[in-house]
Design a protein around this nucleic acid. Structure first.
Length: 839
RNA sequence: GCCGCGGUAGCCCAACUGGUAGAGGCGCUGCGCUCAGAACGCAGAGGUUGCGGGUUCGACUCCCGCCCGCGGUACCA
C-alpha cells in the first residue's frame, strides 16, 4: 500500500494528542534542554513557510533530544498585541480580541497540521489578562527601581497611526508600520532607562553563544565610546560666562578646535544668539525641524549651518572661537554639542571649507606624510602645533590634555553611548495599560500589585484621540479613580506599552504558565533556565534581543532569575526566498499560471516566455508559499524534510516547487523498504554494518551542529544503499529511528509496521560504535609534483615506509621518474595522500 | 562608506584541523519495466571552485588586492 499522508498524518496527530505525548515532564536525573522559537505575531495571513523553517528545526532537535533521554521544554505562544489588529478594528469596529482569537486558532491549526510537538498546555498569549498582569508587574518593578520615568520630549510622531514611535521604529524618517513620513511632536512619554545597563549589556555578550554578526550588531547599537567631556566658557554675546560642554573621543586634538557646533535643538542656542544673528539662527532652526532624519543624514551631502554671533574660549589655549549651529550635530548623542577639529574630522573639515573657518593641523602622521588636500587626517599620530605637547604620540597627548583639564576643573574623562533610553509608551488601545495612577498630590503612583491586572476596558471606538492620547482617555468611568496613596482623586495612565513588552519575558512565563500567585516559580526557573537554544529571524538581532536582555538583567538584580543572560545559544534561520515569474509588461504571475520546461518558464495562457527570478516572498510578487497547500499536496513530513533540506539552515535559499519532489521520493523509498520487509530477499549477514554506524554518527553529529541538510543527505545515501542491496531488520529499525525526528508521522507508522511498541519518541536514539565508522581499507592518492598519478589501496594504518615504497613502485609513478629525474622529498599523509617531489 | 555573510556542475548544495573537487536533491540524456504513460529501478554526461597575485610538496580551504550578491547600519563627535 502506498503511503498516504492525508490518512496517516491526522491519525498519528490524534494519537499523540490522546497520549498527551508532547506534555513537558521533568526528571531531575536527566539533563534539560529548553528550545525556544521566537513566538509569532498571529497575523490574519496565517503561517508561511518561512516560519516553518525555524519551527521544524527546533522540532527535530527536541524530538532527537527526547530520544536521547533529555528533559525537553518546547513551548509556543502568541505575541498578540500589535497594530494590524487595532488598525483593522478602527476600520471595521470589530474588537481586536476577536480578530486576534481567530488568527490564533488558524495559526494553531496550521502548526498542528505540520506535526510540531509543542506542549500546548504551556501556551501563552500576551493579550491574556492573566499574562499581562505580570507584564505590568515587571513594569512596576522597573518603576520602583527608578528605571521607568516620565519625560516630555520631542518624539517621532506618525500622523497616520497617530502615535509616538521610538527612533528605531522611525528609521529613515518613515513609520516602521505604515510607511508614512514621520513628524516631530512634543509628548509626555514613559521611558525605560536601558542606558543604565549599557555596560553590562555590552560585557555579558562575551558569555553567550550567538552568531558573530548579531553580537557585532548589538555592540554597534550600544556604541560605547571612551573620551572626554570638555568645558568651554562663552566669551561674549548675550550668554557670556555660560558653560558649554562637548563630548569628544579625541581630546588630543583640542589645540586644533577652531570653532564649536551645537545642534539646532541645543538648550543654549536661544540665549547664545546675538541680536544681529537672530533671524539667521531661527530660520535655520525651523528648517531643521521640518527636515526628516533622512534629509538630515543621507541626502545631506552639503553641510549647512548658521553662526550664533557668540564666541567661546578654548580651555587649552585661551583662544576665542566662534559658536555655530548645524544639523549634522545630533541633539541626542553626547552633549548635543561638539568642538570642531576640521583638520582631523571629515565632517568638521567639510563644514569649515564650506563656511571659510580656519583649519589647523595638530596631529601629523607618524611617517610624516603631508596632509591630503580636502581630507581630514583622522588617525593617531604625533602632536604638532600643540605647544609643549609637540612630538608626543596621540595616546599620550590624550592623557595629558585630560589631566590638565581635570586639574583645572574644565573637563573629565567620560564614556558616551549611542544607545538611548527606550520610549516605552504608545498612544494606542491594543496594548498593556501602564499600571500607574496620576494624583495631583502624590504624582505618578504605582497601582498596588494586588490590584493587577489593570485590564483594558471595552471602548466604542479604537481611534487614537488624535491629541496624543490613547482611546482610553475617552472612557471616564475607567479613567477616573482614586489615588492608592492618599485616597484623593486620581487619573489612570492612558498610555499603553509597546509590542516589545510582552516578548521581553515570555520565555519565563512558559516555565510556569498557569501560576496565578507569581509570574513563575523559583523552582521552575531553576529547573529550566536559561534557554539552551533560541531560534528566530535575524531581523530581531538588535531590538527584541536587547530589550529582553535588559529586562532579564533587571530581574536578575532583583533576585527573580538566577542567570545573567536569558538566551545561551542563539541561531537565525535564513530567509526563505521564492521564484517569481515576470512577463514583458513587468507583471508578476503566480506559479499556477506558469508552465515550467527545463530552466524556462512560460505563461500557460499565451505561451509567452517569462523571466524567472528569486525574490523575497511577498504578496505583490505572487510568490508566497502557504504551508497549507504544501501539506495538502505533499504531506507534512515532506514539507518538514524539504524545509531543512533546501540548504544550510542559517543561509537564505529559494523555495523550489520542483526540488521538493525529491524529498517525497525519499520518504516513499523509506516507506517501501519498511513495507516490503520480510517479503523482499534479505541480504546475507550484515552487509551495511559500517554504513549504518557511519550514518548514525553522521546524523548525530550534524544535528548537534544544526546541519540538517547534510544529515538528510546521509539518510538518503543510506536509503539508496538499502534499496539497491537489500536491508536487514537492524538496518530498518535504525533508519526509522533516524528519520523519525524529521518525518514523525511516517516514523511512527513505520515503527508500528515493524512491530515496534509505543511511539518513536519513547525509543532510544541509536548508538554507534566509532570503531565501525572507519573503513579497514584506505585508498591513497599518489601524486608526483602535486599531480595525481595513481592510487594505492592498503590496510588502514600501514607504516609510512611501506606506503612510500609501494607508491614509488607504481608503474605510472615509475614512468614519471624516467629520464634521469631524481626523487626529492616524499610526503606521506597517513591514510590519505603520497606526494613525490621530483626534480 | 563601515560591519557581517556568501560566490563550487544548468539549479539548490557537500567537502573534517590545507591532502584524489562530489555526499544528497532538482533538472537533463540513455536504458529497463509498460500496449503507452505515470510511478519505480539502473546507468550516464556535466568543472579554470567569482577574478588576479602570494605562501606551500600540495589551496575550495590560509594571506593580500579586486568584482558581484544578500543582510544590517550610518553625519555617533
Amino acid at each position: 500500500m502506498p503511503f498516504d499522508p492525508r490518512e496517516v498524518e491526522p491519525k498519528w496527530q490524534a494519537r499523540w494528542r490522546e497520549a498527551r505525548l508532547h506534555r513537558t515532564t521533568f526528571d531531575p536525573k536527566k539533563p534539560k534542554f529548553y528550545a525556544l522559537d521566537m513566538f509569532p505575531y498571529p497575523s490574519g495571513a496565517g503561517l508561511h513557510v518561512g516560519h516553518c523553517e525555524g519551527y521544524t528545526a527546533t522540532d527535530v532537535l527536541t524530538r532527537w533530544k527526547r530520544m536521547q533521554g533529555w528533559n525537553v521544554l518546547h513551548p509556543m505562544g502568541w505575541d498578540a498585541f500589535g497594530l494590524p489588529a487595532e488598525n483593522y478594528a478602527i476600520k471595521t469596529g470589530i474588537h481586536p480580541r476577536v480578530t486576534t482569537e481567530q488568527a490564533i486558532s488558524n495559526f494553531r491549526r496550521q502548526i498542528d497540521s505540520v506535526g510540531f510537538a509543542y506542549d500546548w498546555e504551556r501556551e501563552v498569549n500576551t493579550t491574556d489578562p492573566r499574562y499581562y498582569k505580570w507584564t505590568q508587574w515587571i513594569f512596576l518593578q522597573l518603576f520602583k527601581k527608578g528605571l521607568a520615568y516620565e519625560s516630555v520630549m520631542p518624539i517621532n510622531w506618525c500622523p497616520s497611526c497617530k502615535t509616538g514611535l521610538a527612533n528605531e521604529e522611525a528609521a529613515g524618517g518613515r513609520c516602521d508600520r505604515c510607511g508614512t513620513q514621520v513628524e516631530r511632536k512634543d509628548l509626555r512619554q514613559w521611558m525605560l532607562r536601558i542606558t543604565a545597563y549599557a555596560d553590562r549589556l555590552l560585557e555579558d555578550l562575551s558569555e553567550v553563544d550567538w552568531p558573530e554578526s548579531t553580537l557585532a550588531m548589538q555592540r554597534n547599537w550600544i556604541g560605547r565610546s571612551e573620551g572626554a567631556e570638555v568645558v568651554f566658557r562663552v566669551a561674549d554675546g548675550p550668554a557670556a560666562g555660560a558653560e558649554l560642554r562637548v563630548f569628544t573621543t579625541r581630546p588630543d586634538t583640542l589645540h586644533g578646535a577652531t570653532y564649536l557646533v551645537l545642534s539646532p535643538e541645543h538648550g543654549l542656542v536661544e540665549s547664545l544668539t546675538a541680536p544681529e544673528q537672530r533671524t539667521a539662527v531661527t530660520d535655520y532652526q525651523s528648517a531643521a525641524r521640518l527636515k526628516s532624519d533622512l534629509e538630515r543624514t543621507e541626502l545631506a551631502k552639503e553641510k549647512t549651518g548658521a553662526f550664533t554671533g557668540s564666541h567661546a574660549v578654548n580651555p587649552i589655549n585661551g583662544e576665542r572661537i566662534p559658536i555655530w549651529i548645524a544639523d549634522y550635530v545630533l541633539a541626542t548623542y553626547g552633549t548635543g554639542a561638539i568642538m570642531a577639529v576640521p583638520a582631523h574630522d571629515q565632517r568638521d573639515h567639510d563644514f569649515a571649507v564650506k563656511f571659510g573657518l580656519p583649519i589647523r593641523q595638530v596631529v601629523r602622521p607618524v611617517d610624516g606624510a603631508p596632509p591630503e588636500p580636502g581630507k581630514a587626517f583622522t588617525e593617531a599620530g604625533t602632536a604638532v602645533n600643540s605647544g609643549e605637547l609637540d612630538g608626543l604620540p596621540t595616546a599620550e597627548v590624550k592623557q595629558r590634555v585630560v589631566a590638565t583639564l581635570e586639574a583645572r576643573g574644565q573637563g573629565r574623562r567620560t564614556v558616551s553611548y549611542r544607545l538611548r533610553d527606550w520610549i516605552f509608551s504608545r498612544q494606542r488601545y491594543w496594548g498593556e495599560p501602564i499600571p500607574i495612577i496620576h494624583c495631583a498630590k502624590c504624582g505618578a503612583v504605582p497601582v498596588p500589585e494586588d490590584q493587577l491586572p489593570v485590564t483594558l476596558p471595552e471602548v466604542e471606538r479604537y481611534e487614537p484621540s488624535g491629541t496624543g492620547e490613547s482611546p482610553l482617555a475617552t472612557i471616564p468611568e475607567w479613567l477616573e479613580t482614586h489615588c492608592p496613596q492618599c485616597g484623593g482623586p486620581g487619573r489612570r495612565e492612558t498610555n499603553t506599552m509597546p509590542q516589545w513588552a510582552g516578548s521581553c519575558w515570555y520565555y519565563l512565563r512558559y516555565l510556569d504558565p498557569a501560576n496565578d500567585k507569581e509570574p513563575w516559580s523559583k523552582e521552575a526557573e531553576r529547573q529550566w533556565m536559561n534557554v539552551d537554544l533560541y531560534v528566530g529571524g535575524a531581523e530581531h538581532a538588535v531590538l527584541h534581543l536587547l530589550y529582553a536582555r535588559f529586562w532579564h538583567k533587571v530581574l536578575f538584580d532583583l533576585g527573580h532569575v538566577t542567570t545573567k543572560e536569558p538566551f545561551k545559544k542563539l541561531r537565525h534561520q535564513g530567509t526563505v526566498l521564492a521564484y517569481t515569474y515576470v512577463d514583458a509588461a513587468a507583471h508578476y504571475h503566480e506559479l499556477s499560471e506558469v508552465e515550467l520546461r527545463g530552466e524556462d518558464a512560460f505563461l500557460r495562457a499565451t505561451g509567452e516566455k517569462l523571466k524567472v527570478q528569486v525574490e523575497k516572498m511577498a504578496k505583490s510578487k505572487l510568490n508566497g508559499v502557504n504551508p497549507d497547500s504544501v501539506v495538502a499536496e505533499h504531506g507534512a513530513d515532506v514539507l518538514r524534510l524539504y524545509e531543512l533540506f533546501m540548504g544550510e539552515f542559517e543561509l537564505s535559499k529559494p523555495w523550489d516547487p520542483r526540488a521538493i519532489e525529491g524529498c517525497g521520493r525519499f520518504l516513499r523509498r523509506v516507506w517501501r523498504l519498511v513495507e516490503e520487509h520480510g517479503t523482499a530477499r534479505a541480504p546475507e549477514g550484515d552487509p551495511h554494518l559500517r554504513l549504518r554506524h557511519k550514518t548514525t554518527q553522521r546524523v548525530t553529529a550534524d544535528l548537534e551542529r544544526l546541519q540538517f541538510n547534510t544529515a538528510i543527505a546521509a539518510l538518503m545515501t543510506y536509503t539508496n544503499e538499502l534499496v539497491s542491496k537489500g536491508s536487514t531488520r537492524e538496518d530498518l529499525t535504525t533508519l526509522v529511528k533516524l528519520v523519525g525526528p524529521f518525518a514523525p508521522h511516517l516514523g511512527d507508522e513505520a515503527w508500528e509496521r515493524l512491530g515496534g511498541t509505543g511511539f518513536l519518541l519513547e525509543q532510544d536514539w541509536p548508538p554507534f560504535d566509532v570503531a565501525l565508522t572507519v573503513d579497514a581499507q584506505v585508498t591513497y592518492a599518489v601524486q608526483v609534483n602535486g599531480k595525481l598519478r595513481g592510487s594505492l589501496e592498503v590496510e588502514r594504518g600501514t607504516p609510512e615506509a611501506e606506503v612510500r615504497e609501494r607508491a614509488l613502485a607504481l608503474p605510472n609513478v615509475v614512468r614519471q621518474l624516467e629520464g634521469g629525474k631524481t626523487v626529492g622529498k616524499v610526503i606521506v599523509v597517513p591514510d590519505k595522500v603520497v606526494n613525490i617531489v621530483v626534480r
